[in-house]
């Protein structure tokens, strides 16, 4: 794909799946650095620890890091507290990604999504074709045989590529362990300031978070199973402070990985809908 596509980019969200994907790319092209830049579609509301790791990994890999913030969302000061999770995600992430790809003229973007995450993801090709307005049409997916990928697109059209489609959450953790890949420390349990809001434990990562009457941040030993914008990402109480303990906790838990994400709590087909609209 790097050989056949004119302007590829790797979407880098700083989560564990991104970490694995970046590591794979570095291994694949070693001793050269990967021949494409990293793109972070920023919402300005990620955890501070994520920004730190992002900058460190970009420097270490020798790759260019492009950070894109949707100027419209920035001008309007869109945030999850005043505008809600849906509008926040839609403007910063969905619209932001489309704008970034258009602005830089990327016609292929690597992403770290996996088929075991969600039912409509399970149906998606490794090379997922998008129309000129970034729409995914699940009824007209291209055939995809063996490991032969059709990389041909017309002007304006693009491809999202999911190299770790067939990995499971356990595969990802095992690989991180085996390869010693750096990940954001938030995946490990530590004492952190949290408030419980609408049944979700939110970490107070900076002073932009308006506290409701009666809310006082308390220190609790927590960690995160997935990472996103801090106001939208639920923490879980945990004692798991090493990789082995995190994996053990994951195996012994009885709920799925995406359960902590506010964005997935709509009806079953919500992800499919978001993807048709251009969500990653």
């Amino acid at each position: 794909m790097a050989a056949e596509i004119e302007r590829p980019v790797m979407l880098y969200s700083v989560g564990k799946d991104s970490a694995v994907m970046l590591h794979l790319a570095r291994k694949a092209f070693y001793p050269a650095p990967p021949p494409f830049p990293l793109l972070h579609v920023d919402t300005t509301w990620k955890f501070r620890a994520m920004y730190e790791l992002r900058n460190r990994m970009a420097a270490e890999s020798g790759m260019d890091l492009l950070v894109f913030k949707n100027p419209e969302a920035e001008a309007r000061g869109i945030n999850p507290f005043d505008h809600g999770a849906t509008l926040h995600t839609d403007l910063w992430k969905t619209e932001g990604l489309k704008m970034a790809l258009d602005q830089y003229g990327f016609n292929a973007a690597f992403g770290g999504a996996r088929r075991d995450e969600e039912k409509s993801r399970a149906k998606e090709r490794v090379f997922s074709f998008r129309t000129a307005d970034h729409r995914w049409d699940p009824k007209a997916q291209r055939p995809e045989l063996w490991s032969l990928y059709n990389t041909r697109v017309n002007r304006g059209e693009s491809i999202r590529i999911f190299p770790i489609s067939n990995w499971t959450e356990l595969d990802v953790w095992q690989y991180i362990m085996r390869e010693g890949i750096p990940i954001v420390p938030l995946y490990f349990a530590a004492e952190r300031p949290v408030v419980e809001r609408d049944g979700i434990l939110i970490m107070v990562d900076d002073d932009r978070m308006p506290l409701r009457p009666g809310e006082t941040p308390e220190m609790a030993k927590v960690r995160f199973r997935t990472l996103g914008c801090y106001p939208l990402t639920g923490a879980v109480r945990s004692e798991a402070s090493t990789l082995a303990e995190v994996v053990q906790e994951m195996l012994l838990t009885t709920t799925s990985e995406r359960q902590g994400r506010a964005i997935d709590h709509d009806q079953a087909a919500s992800m499919e809908k978001k993807k048709q609209e251009g969500y990653f």
Partner: peptide
């Protein structure tokens, strides 16, 4: 558990 697309369901 398996049929994930809206049209399929």
């Amino acid at each position: 558990l398996v049929d994930g697309l809206a049209a399929e369901r």
